[in-house]
Design a protein around this nucleic acid. Structure first.
Lengths: 223, 223
DNA sequence: TAGATTGTTAATCGATTAACAATC
DNA sequence: TAGATTGTTAATCGATTAACAATC
């Protein structure tokens, strides 16, 4: 597999979407797809899809298109789905619990090893089969287990400190669900944040634009 | 306020980040900030920030910079935070419940009016003060209340149908947390999706790149 | 006033789209 | 073979960065 040394973030952000769409196609029993058909269903141009895949080498056949299962497999490899990566969850409040119980880690190539909290009520129990340890045991656990990603769902006040402890223990990835701009040495760790409020505010902007256009249109009509 | 008819999505996606950073600055008691200082703290260039704000007209003072409170207020207005928008939540499983209990809607300019579900155990109760109605009552509620956004946390199988019902009732925005590519008439509704798995897969890609670089480096060193 | 920093235009860079030869 | 569709280069478009006059 050819790997362009520098793949743009725009392409990287599209890869999971490709993977998801190809999974849906595969489930629907689609065997083969052309770049133009895939583009139509995803709202992208055929050219862009071919250009994106070209970053990693071609996976199609000229005159035929792409085999859905092969392309899905290849993109999965590029995303690192088969690398045996692992997660621990820090914080088992509502959100942490919801993710533990509902998010299909295995489908995304991750094993969920454990959760950590400080509440006596949950420490020592299991959530959806996942053991919950006391946060004091974090370092010991990390020294005994290869952990790829720490998922932060702790209260904002604890976010930076827990993150620092993960980084200090050599965890290479942080998946941040706290609505807080935690900051780490980018040499040591990759941070991916899910900011619900950024998402809602962007939606709010788009709705507002519609409303304003509606008003503008109305006053035009009333002229 | 000058509104460029066409503001790029790249700019729109940065607006909530500006808003969040300015809120943090305000809380920290910072009164004034220059584009270069804000850029440094957000990882953007000063030029980009000035260019972004220029889309909406200038909010700063030459030779001085930007007043944090004024800029925050202006960006809040651009995002539509003071427009009295409202939300209802569809689905009160773990994730829906977590969002209802933890997400600060009011800080983002939204009022959370109600939740809907089909489970007898929750219908008729309140979650964090929010009434839970039966999904059958959705249309009646929507006809009596101005609802701006429907938050979808229903099971995938129900996502499209519930979304269609929102759209049919004239709800202008859908905030989609189901990991499913629902599709609606873009003339009628704006959809903003939060795909946890896309986020984790992008993180996985970045971690994998690090690992591969590490290996490449190791084998260089061993030469 | 002098210094600082914005508002705004121009230049550069990068991403997307177009085009087409290669080939299945 | 003829038709279809990719891989890949070139052209275009848009976003970011640079520059600097305006002005606080």
């Amino acid at each position: 597999m050819k790997r362009n040394s520098k793949v743009s973030t725009a392409v990287i952000r599209r890869l999971p979407r490709y993977y998801r769409h190809l999974s849906e196609l595969q489930e629907a029993g689609v065997v083969r797809i052309s770049s133009s058909a895939l583009g139509k269903s995803m709202g992208l141009t055929a050219s862009q899809i071919r250009q994106d895949l070209f970053c990693f080498g071609g996976f199609g056949q000229q005159g035929y298109g792409y085999k859905v299962d092969i392309l899905k497999e290849e993109i999965g490899d590029i995303l690192g789905i088969n690398r045996g990566h692992t997660v621990v969850v820090l914080g088992t409040g509502n959100l942490g619990r919801a993710i533990i119980e509902n998010f299909r880690f295995s489908i995304n190539g991750f094993r969920l090893l454990a959760a950590f909290d400080i509440s006596k009520q949950v420490v020592g129990t299991r959530i959806a089969g996942v053991p919950v340890y006391h946060a004091d045991e974090l370092e010991e656990f990390l020294s005994k287990n290869q952990v790829s990603v720490g998922l932060l769902t702790v209260p904002i006040a604890a976010a930076q400190e827990m993150g620092d402890r993960l980084v200090a223990a050599g965890v290479p990835g942080i998946w941040n669900f706290t609505n807080y701009e935690i900051s780490f040495n980018p040499e040591k760790v990759v941070v991916e944040s899910v900011h619900f409020s950024d998402s809602l505010l962007a939606l709010n902007y788009m709705i507002t634009q519609r409303e304003l256009q509606g008003i503008a249109k109305d006053s035009e009509e009333s002229l």
